[in-house]
Design a binder for these strands. Structure first.
Length: 314
DNA sequence: AATATGATCAACCGCGTCACT
DNA sequence: GAGTGACGCGGTTGATCATAT
């Protein structure tokens, strides 16, 4: 019995999102918070399926998203995490809070895959699909062995990432998620700035053509979003000065901070990664005798670690 | 200038998982 | 425990832009 398609309704719009739709969606989420995606199309009047709304929000409109070029640091992180986790892009993205899984996936497929292929040409002819193919999937019955392998790989990848991070920290500390592990992963103020950039960018184009309030209200139909639309990007009920009609820039108008934004806790809902990282780091640090972490000895201990090191950890 | 080819990335699709009844 | 609905993830597609011919 197959599952019926989620968007088989006639009249469901597909394709690129328009700025109007973005604004309606942002306004709605500002008012109601993310989640309950099923209700979003109904309540906003958007002719989109719930899935599409969620995707648009998480991949594009969500506060804290950094777009554009990946830094060398991010690139290294992705490569190491891909080796460690495989194509679990959401898990990888949880270690790079400013990037979406879709972004990382695209970047891997378009840039890193090729890069690694190039690097590996001549070294390992049979490894044509990046690092992950060095660690083929293990059958379900062998989960224990896989766990051990994963542990080993986690140690190794993290130590390498740490060593790289230490080496580069003077250059780019902002992307060094390991340098202050418990303070840098959650969103900081700058993330919200980048989010307003997203929105201001779409508004920039949109406002050239239309009056957003009129248009969005009309598009929203009978939804309850009218109130929100009067101040679509304040992100703060008390910040009613942030009207679109004023000459104030969107960035100023939004006046976002992690403290006053309703997205404060939501901006990266999946903090599983942080937990994972924290646990791993804790473990690594506790196991520091073998790693030499924090003692200025680099990661020789890890590199020389035998595959049996994972045994007895639990 | 016109066309072909390649690269990029936003969005879609199908499936798995989880939560609720 | 089974059935159902909603959500989230990963693979893939297709539109658009950039570059080469």
């Amino acid at each position: 019995m197959g599952r019926p398609p989620c968007c088989d309704k006639i009249g469901v719009k597909k394709g690129p999102w328009t700025p109007e739709e973005d604004i309606i969606l942002v306004s709605y989420i500002q008012e109601h918070g993310p989640g309950n995606w099923r209700a979003v199309p109904t309540n906003t009047g958007l002719l989109r399926c719930s899935k599409s709304c969620r995707l648009r929000w998480t991949n594009y409109l969500r506060p804290g998203i950094k777009r554009g070029n990946f830094t060398e640091q991010e690139e290294k992180m992705i490569i190491h995490l891909q080796a460690l986790l495989g194509n679990r892009w959401a898990a990888i993205a949880s270690y790079l809070p400013q990037r979406t899984d879709n972004d990382i996936k695209n970047y891997w497929n378009t840039h890193l895959k090729k890069k690694l292929k190039k690097l590996q040409t001549g070294q390992d002819g049979d490894n044509q699909d990046g690092i992950s193919s060095s660690f083929p999937l293990i059958s379900k019955g062998q989960w224990e062995r896989r766990l051990q392998t994963d542990i080993h790989m986690a140690k190794r990848a993290l130590s390498e990432a740490l060593s790289m991070t230490n080496a580069d920290s003077s250059k780019d500390s902002s992307t060094n998620i390991f340098s202050h592990p418990h303070t840098t992963l959650p969103y900081q103020a700058s993330n919200y700035a980048s989010s307003t950039e997203n929105i201001s960018r779409l508004l920039e184009n949109w406002m050239k053509n239309k009056n957003p309030l009129k248009s969005a209200a009309a598009t929203a139909g009978s939804s309850s979003s009218e109130g929100a639309l009067s101040c679509p990007f304040s992100f703060n009920s008390s910040n009613s000065d942030a009207s679109l009609g004023s000459s104030t820039s969107v960035e100023e108008a939004a006046n976002l901070t992690p403290e006053n934004s309703i997205f404060q806790d939501e901006s990266k809902p999946n903090m599983e990664g942080e937990v994972q990282l924290t646990m791993l780091e804790k473990w690594l640090l506790e196991d520091g005798s073998g790693l030499g972490l924090g003692q200025g000895h680099g990661h020789e201990g890890l590199v020389n670690m035998s595959s049996e090191d994972g045994e007895g950890l639990f």
